[in-house]
């Protein structure tokens, strides 16, 4: 497989602030690549550089083999983008927004109608196609935007927090659709997210914090790298069970809420032996694999949280201001 996105020592400074700090990575054609990081980590800045909307301070970036700085036109031909903030024209209808996009992305005139209607159907908005976008709910706008990003069948699709503001149902639907893209249409997906469940489905992940990539790999690899499975066991006599475990394996279980817990490399191969040793006294046993959240916590020292809805209060102020003037 070849790399469709190639980033080499990319750095972007805004005045004194280094938003992206010497990052390098490759994304394989036909894969789903996830960028995971807290607010202000530099995800959107990286996407803006890859989409040719921003020049890097130093370093290079290639999409589809084209240099994002020197051949922006060729890069633009290869990509589709769903921006983090809404970029719809609210005074146009859903259909008009999508048709505008189809034309400007060079979809042939004969196909505009069909592609636009397909895309609207895909996100369940066909029956609202002639409504002005300003009458749409937040989630509907988001879905419309995702549909728009796909209309011209890009080779690489950038999704900057695609499920922001969607209800669980729509989020699942959207995910099913995104997951099909690489296989059905050969699209490479580059996405950012705050949601761990979403990060789980990515073929590869890069965890970014303060502009630096602090870890990358498949979700499985990342989890393996930070650690082991955690076994929880409850017995009729925890004190003696603890002594047996210590004696046998040298591990020092802790007791918490009536359960003994300790970490092992592969819980599934340890548990049978454990049951044998503690025969008859085990009340319950379970184990947990490390989650991406644990990975994140360990690497950055902070929890990742889905950010509150986009900054809607400010936008509202802007609109109110506009009305007054």
């Amino acid at each position: 497989m070849s790399a469709v996105i190639k980033v080499e020592h990319l750095t972007k400074k805004f005045g004194g602030l280094t938003a992206v700090d010497d990052i390098s990575f490759d994304v394989e054609e036909g894969s789903i690549f996830g960028f995971l990081g807290p607010n202000g980590a530099g995800k959107t800045t990286t996407i803006n550089i890859l989409c040719t909307l921003l020049n890097p301070t130093s370093g290079r970036a290639f999409v589809g083999g084209y240099d994002c700085v020197r051949e922006p036109h060729m890069v633009r031909k290869a990509i589709g983008i769903v921006f983090q903030d809404s970029t719809l024209d609210k005074d146009l209808t859903a259909y008009e927004n999508l048709a505008f996009h189809a034309y400007i992305y060079g979809v042939g005139r004969a196909q505009v109608r069909e592609r636009t209607e397909d895309a609207l159907r895909f996100v369940g908005l066909l029956d609202r196609k002639d409504d002005l976008v300003k009458r749409f709910s937040g989630g509907m706008k988001r879905r419309l935007e995702v549909a728009r990003g796909l209309i011209h069948r890009p080779r690489v699709l950038f999704l900057d927090e695609p499920t922001l503001g969607l209800d669980p149902q729509s989020r699942t639907n959207l995910w099913e659709a995104i997951l099909e893209l690489p296989e059905r249409h050969g699209v490479t997906v580059f996405m950012t997210t705050h949601y761990m469940e979403e990060a789980e489905v990515c073929g590869r992940l890069a965890i970014i914090d303060h502009g630096k990539i602090i870890a990358s790999g498949s979700p499985g690899e990342l989890k393996k790298a930070i650690g082991e499975d955690l076994i929880f066991i409850k017995t009729t006599d925890n004190a003696s069970a603890r002594a047996r475990i210590e004696e046998l394996s040298g591990l020092k279980p802790e007791e918490k809420d009536g359960e003994l817990l300790f970490t092992v490399q592969r819980a599934e191969s340890v548990i049978p032996g454990l049951l044998k040793t503690l025969a008859g006294t085990v009340l319950s046993i379970r184990f947990e694999r490390p989650t991406l959240n644990d990975v994140f916590l360990k690497l950055t020292g902070k929890e990742i949280r889905p950010e509150a809805q986009e900054d809607s209060s400010i936008k509202e102020e802007v609109r109110a201001y506009r009305r007054r003037h």
Binding site: C51, T52, L53, H73, R76, K77, I79, I81, F83, D85, S86, T87, L88, D89, K90, H101, I104, Y105, G106, V318
Partner: peptide, 15 residues
């Protein structure tokens, strides 16, 4: 620019 639509235009593969 303010409402984002310009990004939609500027990201498009047109001169």
């Amino acid at each position: 620019k303010e409402f984002g639509f310009l990004k939609e235009i500027l990201a498009a593969p047109v001169r």
